[in-house]
Design a protein around this nucleic acid. Structure first.
Lengths: 339, 339
DNA sequence: CTGAAAGCGCTTACAG
DNA sequence: CTGAAAGCGCTTACAG
């Protein structure tokens, strides 16, 4: 018997099962070349001893850690945390752990920093959140370093094994359809920042739906934003002060939509009576602002879970899914336009 | 010369420097027993080769990983993420990485789950966020497992080496003082959930300040909450429908304060003209709600950084600090009461 | 299908 | 102040 005050090692298992360490190793790693008898016998001893392979030793021998990395540039605290929860759902009761790594997408040494990080930590794989998930050089780096990766984003930027995406474009179309059905014709857009694929997708969805309905979008009905609250406030100000005031605004995310609420209030415009507003993300503020905001919600946690499974259990069914539909969450910031 | 296509190991350094591996190891680990000459020579070779010790190998030999863990029960996404940023500030350019571990404080197997986690991952140390940082059994577990730990919280629950705390009680007193100075007398409290130390501290601060000003707090001026938006809405409803309506409300966090804003609006009460509101946390919603909310902000990121430094560099100056003063962030949800 | 030997890249007693 | 040997707990070729 192994000394009971120490955690058992592969040697203890081998001795008690009467096999070599190598055979125990084969059981741990689910090698196919094993007689059913041997496997059963070894598994019994493993269970009896409560043996768990030491991750540090495996990491050294395999030159690969049992760690998943989360690379992000803090787009939104709530999103990052939900992704973390999703990843945790996937790795619960496995030997994997989650390492987080916030980065600065504007750093000139971004790629080199991450290269060093991957080299040092020898991660099993990384999940990359938008907007840095849109950086192809980063994906190539992972490939080159032999590090698994899955990108999260608003459109399929990579093959299904390396991508988990929402359907932003379609959902914004649906949001515009919703406004048009209620009778809105002058619908304005607050755009996301240049260089963000999600901003691009949402704008294209908006313009496509407007075109489909035969509605024109004058320049005065489009305003740039940065995804930040202040930019939404400013953009909505521009939109609302135009000669042809819109009856509805689609803001490319909830934070900017919140800014639009403020801009409306500053002009004594009531939401939704005088102005309908739709946001995107279904972040907490959408439910907590007054009146509660209609917005597009996407399954962040599920996407995080699926992304992690693609990395650690590609055979599982969920791991095969790459497209995750969002949905329109109807609340009280939308009403028919006043006659 | 080592093969240039491989990352250099301690053997390469030893050979080139003409010393034993052990001596190189001493340099890496900053052993005191080393001649200045040897140290300089070895450091030169390390720099030339760009040698970085392999963390996996060190982890195996030391039975300890160069990983910091973040144990939390998702009190607030923004807070968790800011702590992560603070920790990253501390471990930047070190060999440490940050592992996150959300837990469920209500799980009956909480301690056993964490024990297993610590046993498996052999973390260097963990940072524990409130409210689970208030769990003494958890701290004892860390001690027992030989895992460093630092708790974050609203009061000193442990000695300075294991604690980083804000001064919630004082700050709530300051918030009440502010209201009293403006002329408020009927000030109500929305409490945080039972069992949260922060809720306790904030309530005690509130009551102490009211007593100091000689103001009574009838039962009708205290309402329970859960730190969630909905509970703030409900609690404020109770408070505002009481016969002696308060002219100001202190809510124990911003989320509940946001609920109070809604409750006021539902009753056609204007903030701050008819009702002043102060929250706690300085979360994004405080700045984005209308009107912008006066609240207590605490230095979450700095506290995260200090906590991490206590773990990895106890000698550094910042690592010695344990008390982190919050401050009152004055915005527009507070005004003198109407005559 | 199974095993003995060597190795992953470090550190820990133990000497000297 | 410095080093040779053994060990941390696994896996990888290589045999058989």
């Amino acid at each position: 018997m192994p000394k009971s005050n120490k955690t058992p090692t592969i040697n203890d298992v081998a001795r008690l099962a009467g096999v070599s360490k190598k055979t125990v190793s084969r059981v741990i790693n689910r090698s196919a070349l094993l007689s059913e008898d041997t496997r059963t016998k070894v598994e019994a001893v493993i269970a009896e001893l409560g043996y768990v392979p030491n991750p540090q030793a495996r990491a050294l021998a395999l030159r690969r850690n049992f760690l998943l990395g989360l690379l992000h540039d803090n787009p939104n605290a709530q999103t990052v945390l939900k992704v973390q929860e999703g990843v945790l759902d996937a790795i619960r009761d496995t030997e994997f752990a989650l390492v987080v790594r916030p980065v600065d997408r504007h750093s000139p040494t971004l790629i080199e920093d991450i290269r060093h990080f991957l080299e040092l930590q020898r991660l099993y794989g990384v999940l990359i959140l938008p907007p840095i998930s849109e950086n192809d050089a980063l994906a190539e780096l992972c490939l080159e370093m032999g590090c698994g990766y899955v990108r999260m984003g608003s459109a399929m930027l990579d093959d299904a094994d390396h991508m988990v995406a929402s359907n932003d474009r379609e959902m914004v179309e649906a949001a515009v359809d919703h406004l048009v059905e209620l009778g809105h014709r002058r619908i304005a857009l607050i755009e996301g920042p240049k260089g963000f694929r999600s901003a691009h997708e949402r704008r294209e969805g908006f313009l496509a739906a407007m075109a489909r309905h035969g509605l024109v979008v004058p320049d005065s009905a489009r305003a740039p934003g940065t995804y930040r609250f202040e930019s939404g406030l400013e953009a909505a100000g521009l939109l609302l002060d135009a000669s042809e005031r819109p009856t509805a605004i689609f803001a490319s995310n909830d934070e900017m939509a919140s800014g639009a609420f403020h801009a409306a209030r500053q002009r004594n415009l009531r939401v939704p009576d005088d102005l309908s507003i739709i946001g995107f993300d279904d972040s907490p503020i959408a439910a907590h602002i007054w009146p509660p905001m209609t917005t597009v919600g996407w399954p962040v946690r599920e996407m995080g879970r699926a992304a992690a499974l693609k990395l650690i259990a590609p055979a599982e069914e969920v791991a095969g899914e790459s497209r995750f539909p969002a949905r329109l969450v109807k609340r009280q910031s939308v009403a028919p336009p006043k006659a």
